[in-house]
């Protein structure tokens, strides 16, 4: 078996949280205490993930991220930081997965302009997804729920040749 093939089997194992050296640490940033507890329980149950911080407060989230340097931060996008960009702040210290209600294609594509590695959309999250998303992102890859994947594949199709200015075509390239 060629080495690349073996590498990919490792990815599949990684997603399920098989042994991979140092444990992955996670910060949970979510406004609802019960959901926070549920997410924590699910991650902990995987046996390979360590939840190092849990908060619903944006300032505390940034402080915790800076202090604990979690591998991955799970951020519910209802936790907002007016004036500052919470995603940017968290992304300085960890890899960010955003949890959202957004299903509109434009909203999801806009959300992914921020430095996030994954997007889990409520209503499309099946039991193993949370853990697999964290493991995928921790191993340097990404994770998108089906509706988010639909949004980005749509954006990719629309991006031939240039997406952001649909009405404008490529006329701005004609500038002398």
């Amino acid at each position: 078996m060629p080495p690349r093939q073996r590498g990919r089997e490792c990815v599949a194992e990684l997603l399920d949280g098989h042994p991979s050296g140092t444990p992955t640490t996670v910060l949970i940033v979510h406004p609802d205490p019960r959901d926070r507890a549920a997410i924590r329980a699910e991650l902990v149950a995987s046996g390979r993930l360590r939840v190092v911080g849990v908060t619903g407060d944006r300032d505390e989230a940034v402080a915790l991220a800076g202090r604990l340097r979690p591998t991955v931060s799970l951020l519910d996008d209802r936790v907002r930081a007016p004036g500052t960009d919470l995603v940017e702040a968290l992304a300085r210290w960890s890899l960010v997965i955003v949890l959202t209600d957004a299903t509109e294609r434009d909203a999801v594509v806009t959300l992914l302009q921020a430095p996030v590695q994954g997007c889990l959309v409520y209503g499309h999250i099946e039991p193993p997804d949370l853990v697999r998303a964290v493991n995928a992102v921790a191993s340097g890859l990404g994770w998108l729920s089906p509706s988010a994947a639909a949004a980005v594949t749509w954006a990719m199709r629309a991006s031939t040749p240039r997406p952001a200015h649909p009405g404008r075509g490529s006329s701005h390239l004609d500038l002398p």
Binding site: V116, G118, A136, G142, W143, A149, V152, T153, M156
Partner: peptide, 8 residues
């Protein structure tokens, strides 16, 4: 995961 990361 790789498809997601490349696309993003």
């Amino acid at each position: 995961p790789r498809g997601a990361s490349v696309t993003i």
